[in-house]
Nucleic acid binder design. Structure first.
Lengths: 173, 173
DNA sequence: GTTGCTGGTTGCACAGTACAACTGTGACAA
DNA sequence: TTGTCACAGTTGTACTGTGCAACCAGCAAC
């Protein structure tokens, strides 16, 4: 899945209609991006995987969430979340406090260190994105953002519409 | 990283300017998409991982490539490619023939079975994308496609501009 | 209490990946 | 011819993210 800039892969218009070509392109480019996202995260902030970053970001916005909430939200297995959180706690980025009302649940909180790490990474990502999109006219940025939101708003699995189920066996791509 | 449709995550405009908000949104939504892509592939065609699909697709367009070409193109380690190709060959989807001119290299070819598998998966993906984008006006499709191409055309690593370096340790998100 | 539900952890298996060491082949020079 | 070096690909090892299943601990309802 090559960048569109290289003449290496010629998008084939299957139906001949422009909309079909666009569909192919969207599919192809989205796949390209997906393959690159992890790598981007790896280069940009090796200390914080994309999952960790995501979970951390979630906790920043919604402090006091439970592990189960995160698992449900991201449609990750609770064991996966548990392990991720363990790592984050081990790294001192979050705290797990037992809920006094229900000793089964853990209430999750960002530590100061976690907040700082998140801020650093966010800033680095923001800079990278800003640089990458520097020469885009504002109008295009707004439209692109709107398209992406609209695209992602599509319910991907289940009635919830907010789950992106991960798949056994790691990365798949 | 929640879908924009849910009121769960409020995009914060850091600078207050619309373009900044758009930047945040793009970053967030691209990340969302990246997390979902593998899952999409897993649901859509569990028999063909996104990597395999990508490699197979590459071979369809450029028959007779060498493993090293693929490794360079996708910036994967040759060992990774080697194992992926082994799996594909074991599944009967590709053939590895020794280059008569240089017995070190293997020339890669899709088998009939491989072509069919690829076609099936491509069709399934196309259908999914088509369904997902069914109610988009053609104009938006074209623009969205153009934006994505433009976005991905950005050189991600190295002077080549066509490498998306994978990262040790699997998925990263 | 006993039974059942729920939140979380742990054991296990598996896929994708990189790095390093290795094998086999080719190329080129002394 | 014989080294020597370079290159293509495989294999061994280690690591990460992931799910499933089994499990433990606390809560609730009977």
């Amino acid at each position: 899945m090559t960048a569109a800039a290289t003449p290496d892969e010629t998008p084939v218009a299957p139906g001949g209609r422009p909309a079909d070509t666009a569909l192919e392109t969207i599919q192809r480019e989205m796949t390209t991006f997906a393959r690159r996202a992890r790598a981007l995260a790896g280069r940009l902030h090796p200390e914080l995987s994309l999952v960790s970053y995501t979970l951390l970001g979630h906790l920043e916005e919604r402090d006091g969430r439970r592990a189960t909430d995160l698992a449900a939200h991201y449609a990750l297995d609770k064991s996966t979340v548990s392990r991720q959180l363990s790592a984050l706690e081990r790294a001192g980025l979050i705290e797990r406090r037992v809920d006094p009302d229900d000793h089964r649940v853990q209430v999750l909180h960002l530590t100061e260190s976690g907040r700082h790490a998140l801020d650093r990474v966010t800033e680095r990502r923001r800079t990278a994105f800003r640089e990458r999109l520097a020469d885009w006219p504002e109008e295009d940025l707004l439209r692109f953002a709107a398209y992406l939101e609209r695209y992602n708003a599509w319910p991907v699995a289940g009635p919830d519409g907010d789950r992106d189920r991960a798949v056994p066996g790691g990365t798949y791509g």
